[in-house]
Design a protein around this nucleic acid. Sequence first.
DNA 1: CGCCGAGTTGAACTGAATCAAGAAACGTGG
DNA 2: CCACGTTTCTTGATTCAGTTCAACTCGGCG
Lengths: 175, 175
Amino acid sequence: MLDQLLKKGLKTKSFSKGEMLQREGQKSAKVFIVKKGLLRSYIIDEKGKEHIYMFASEGWLASDIESQSFKSNTVLFIDAIEDSEVYILEPSDLTPNAESLEDYNLIVDTLMKRMGVMQRRILSLMSASARERYESFLQIYPELPNRVPLKMIAAYLGITPEALSTIRNKIAKNR
Amino acid sequence: MLDQLLKKGLKTKSFSKGEMLQREGQKSAKVFIVKKGLLRSYIIDEKGKEHIYMFASEGWLASDIESQSFKSNTVLFIDAIEDSEVYILEPSDLTPNAESLEDYNLIVDTLMKRMGVMQRRILSLMSASARERYESFLQIYPELPNRVPLKMIAAYLGITPEALSTIRNKIAKNR
DNA sequence: CGCCGAGTTGAACTGAATCAAGAAACGTGG
DNA sequence: CCACGTTTCTTGATTCAGTTCAACTCGGCG
């Protein structure tokens, strides 16, 4: 996706499982592109509950660029679910005053792909039941259930671990 | 926002209340920028229910560019809630092979603003109750309740008109 | 071994959906 | 400008998906 950008000699940084890449309330949001491993971005609400905004595995990116656009502090936490290697882009890298137009097209393309994922997520949160959302999650990310604990999938779907457990076993007994 | 782009001699087109600008299942998605009036983009699910994805009033845009990024057909309907005047951009206008970098920065900026709105929407759908979502809707779009029928606000919030009616009158009697 | 976090199962509860009926608002045509 | 039918909004009764709370199992790790 953004591979070409990375040829520019950008170095990777390593994070071990559980390590934090970004906290809530920071001034500037960086963009993390996953070379290897798995990241998650999430919020913690007033009741202390975690809600996972996105997973990012190899080739995907995790970031809070959204909060940049409002010039506000970061709202998301980002940490590593597995030992990971990531490229780190500064905000300035995203809006270059640069010369090369290909970079721009790549960026626009990447942003639009991301918006596509977000659009689907919104529509599915509005119109689909927990079970339907889980089933389409499996379609879109077939490998994630093997790498991510159930409770995180629940936090991504917007339901409780108990509810997801029940859904799973209904599917297993197909009813 | 994209005002500068529009100096390029782009013409507006008029649509009267209720008129369709885009249907589901079309090949190419255009971008509609609202000069005057109010648009909505929405899906109709299998049960025939409408779910409003976004409202677009003066200065905002309505589009299904998201589906472009997957090279798939449009999934959204777009129509006019009020008599409206809109600029119409072709997809090609969005990814110019052009010369001017300022255009690009404008586009990236616009896309990121849009993603900001989407991020907030996702997080609020996951973590907030119907009432909380309605209250923050009022904050963000204080003028829309006067221009949009209740049932459309409900379709935007992801709840039924009945539920929204109940919420309203609870707020009125503040409990 | 014994502990601890992760997952499961079940009972009681709750916010929102559904269904139904009536009241208000709102075009449109005469 | 009024009368009409249609859509929009409200209110209440019932149902249901998903939450909360609690108890129990299992597998890993000290």
